[in-house]
Amino acid sequence: MSALFYLLLAIGTAFNGLGAFALMRFPDVYTRIHGATKCTTFGSIFSILAVVAYGFYKGGGEGGTLALHALLALFFLLITNPTGSHALARAAHRAGVKPVGAVVDRLEEKK
C-alpha cells in the first residue's frame, strides 16, 4: 500500500518540479504561463491524490476528514488555477508585453 503513495508522490513532485524549471527556462511571459500552469496543476493533482488515498486507507473519522478536505482543496485548485493564469495572460497582453518570436498575433491586429 505504501508503494502506491510513493508512486503518486513521485509523479506529483516530478511534475511540480517541471513546472518550476519551465518557469526559469522559457523565454517570455506566455510560454512561462504555459509551463507553470499545466505542470503545477497536474503535479498538485497527483500530490493531493496521494493524500486522499492515504486518508481513505487510514479510515475512521480522522482519515475520512483528511481525504474529503483534501478533495475539496483539489476541486478549488482545479477551478481557480486556469482561471487565474488566463487573467494574467490577458493582463500581460493589455499591458503591452509582446510574445517573443511570434509568427502571428491576431489579438494585436484586432486593436
Binding site: G19, A20, L23, I33, A36, G43, S44, N81
Partner: peptide
Amino acid sequence: VALDTINTLVVATMVLLGA
C-alpha cells in the same frame, strides 16, 4: 506568474504537511 506558481506549490505543500 512566478507568484501564482508559488501559491499553487504552497497549497500542495500544506496539504502534504497536513497528512
